[in-house]
């Protein structure tokens, strides 16, 4: 029994710690979310709904505020498009896409493409697209992006990578 209580306490501590980290990374403090009125206007305008997936940013905010777990496969964590429709309509302008980005980064939910993007920035200070495409080639082949290449000819240009001076 004692062991179970310890596990529960440990889990609660971890969730609270994780939520605090996510909130901090997104530039907020926990109390900033206390202003949320629960009006759910964010849910009514969320682009993720257009994918026929129920999305409720307000519920995600409440979970972070109350120290509840937000699952890795939460629809917003997986499909938020950074459209800022929620922020635009929120009476408090809460920047939910930025909270979700912090969530994705904290939990390491990144595609091969996103990792390659950041890899290029680390090396050169800029995104060098040929590097990003090469690094994510297996993913893109597997996922069938190759079929769109004929439509992308106009995007092709040649330049060598340039490493910037100073940060």
């Amino acid at each position: 029994m004692q062991q179970t209580d310890n596990n529960i306490e440990h889990t609660i501590f971890n969730i609270e710690h994780l939520n605090k980290k996510i909130i901090g990374m997104s530039g907020y403090k926990r109390e900033d979310f206390s202003v949320c009125l629960g009006c759910k206007i964010c849910a009514s305008v969320c682009t993720v709904n257009d994918l026929s997936i129920d999305a409720n940013p307000q519920e995600l905010l409440s979970s972070l505020f109350l120290g509840r777990t937000v699952e890795k496969n939460h629809p917003l964590v997986l499909f938020c498009t950074n459209c800022y429709r929620c922020t635009h309509n929120c009476p408090w302008g809460i920047r939910i896409p930025e909270i979700i980005r912090a969530f994705r980064e904290t939990l390491g939910i990144e595609s091969q493409f996103e990792k390659a993007f950041k890899g290029a920035v680390k090396i050169w200070g800029r995104v060098y697209e040929p590097y990003v495409f090469l690094k994510s080639a297996t993913y893109m082949l597997k996922e069938g992006y190759i079929r769109y290449v004929p439509k992308w000819f106009e995007y092709i240009s040649f330049h060598l990578p340039y490493k910037i001076k100073g940060r």
Partner: peptide, 8 residues
């Protein structure tokens, strides 16, 4: 950084 970074 576009929209790729979680740390504001």
């Amino acid at each position: 950084g576009a929209f790729e970074y979680g740390n504001k």
